[in-house]
C-alpha cells in the first residue's frame, strides 16, 4: 500500500513542520532521521492521522487518512510508539491481545510473532517487570501480530542491545521482503544506510532532503542535519559513517 503526503504542514505553539511532499512506495523501508525534536515522531503521527495537518493531506492506499475509521486504519497500518505505557498488571499476552483487537486473537500467530523477537517464553510474564529492551521487543512483536500492510515504527531499536538490534534489523528486512511497507525513525545512521530504501532528513521541522538512500544519505546532507562533521570510512560490510565534534 502506498502512502502519500501532499504539501503537509503542521504547527503547534513554537514548532512548525513541513511542508512535506513525498510518497512511500509499497514494499519499501523509509527511514526518517534528524536531531531530537526535529519532527520525526510528529511526521509519523501526521501520517497515521493522530495529528491533523494545518494544510495538505495524507492518503493511505489512495484514501484520505482523515476519512478512515479507526477500524479501517488498523487494518491498513500498525504503529510502534516511541513511548511505552505501563498498563496496570498486564501480562505480555494481554499486550498482544490488544493488538489482536481487529484480526481476532489466535495463539499460534501470537506465539510466532513473539518468537520472531525471541521472546515467546515470556508470554505470561508481567509486562511491567520486563526490562526496557524486552518491552520494546514486545511492542515490535505486537505490531507484527496486528498483521497490517503498513508498519509505522518510532524508534523500534530504542533500548536494544547490539544483538537484539540486529534481530530487529533482520526482521524489518524480512517484513519488507514479504511485501510490507515500513516507515520508521532510527538514530543509527549505519543501520539506516543498510536497511532503508528511502530516507527523509529533517532539521527543525524542515525537510533537508528526501529521496532514495543512495542519493540522500550522504555526508553533505548529514552535515546539514546535525551539528557534527561526518566522514565515511570503509568496513568489511561496506562504507559506514562516523561523526566528529566540530571545533
Amino acid at each position: 500500500m502506498k502512502v502519500e503526503l501532499e504539501d503537509v504542514t503542521f504547527r503547534v505553539s513554537s514548532f512548525s513542520l513541513g511542508p512535506l511532499d513525498f510518497s512511500v512506495e509499497e514494499g519499501t523501508i523509509t527511514a526518517i532521521i534528524g536531531k531530537n525534536g526535529s519532527g520525526k515522531s510528529t511526521t509519523l503521527k501526521l501520517i497515521h492521522g493522530d495529528l491533523k495537518p494545518n494544510t495538505g493531506s495524507v492518503s493511505i492506499d489512495s484514501s484520505k487518512v482523515s476519512s478512515l475509521s479507526s477500524a479501517e486504519l488498523a487494518e491498513k497500518t500498525s504503529f510502534v510508539w516511541q513511548e511505552i505505557y505501563n498498563p496496570m498488571s498486564f501480562s505480555v499476552r494481554d499486550v498482544m491481545n490488544v493488538s489482536g483487537y481487529k484480526r481476532g486473537n489466535d495463539e499460534d500467530s501470537m506465539g510466532e510473532a513473539l518468537e520472531s523477537v525471541g521472546l515467546s517464553s515470556l508470554i505470561d510474564m508481567d509486562f511491567s517487570v520486563l526490562s526496557g529492551g524486552e518491552r520494546r521487543l514486545v511492542t515490535v512483536a505486537a505490531a507484527i501480530y496486528q498483521d497490517s500492510e503498513i508498519m509505522i515504527m518510532d524508534e523500534p531499536t530504542n533500548f536494544l542491545d547490539i544483538d537484539n538490534q540486529i534481530v530487529v534489523y533482520k526482521l524489518l528486512k524480512r517484513l519488507r521482503d514479504a511485501g510490507k511497507t515500513l516507515i520508521l525513525t532510527m538514530h543509527d545512521l549505519d543501520a539506516v544506510h543498510n536497511l532503508a530504501d528511502s530516507v527523509l532528513i529533517l532539521r527543525g521541522g524542515r525537510k533537508v532532503a528526501w529521496g532514495s538512500t543512495s542519493s540522500t544519505l550522504n555526508i553533505e546532507n548529514l552535515n546539514k542535519a546535525f551539528n557534527v562533521s561526518f566522514h565515511s570510512y570503509d568496513t568489511v560490510n561496506g562504507s559506514a559513517f562516523a561523526g566528529s565534534y566540530k571545533g
Binding site: S70, A71, V98, K102
Partner: peptide, 21 residues
C-alpha cells in the same frame, strides 16, 4: 472489556489497533 484493555495502553495505541476510543 477489550476496548478498555486497549485504552489502558494509551488512547493513540488503542486507536491504532482499531478501537473507536
Amino acid at each position: 472489556h477489550r476496548e478498555l484493555d486497549a485504552i489502558q495502553m494509551g488512547d493513540m495505541h488503542a486507536r491504532s489497533v482499531g478501537v473507536n476510543v
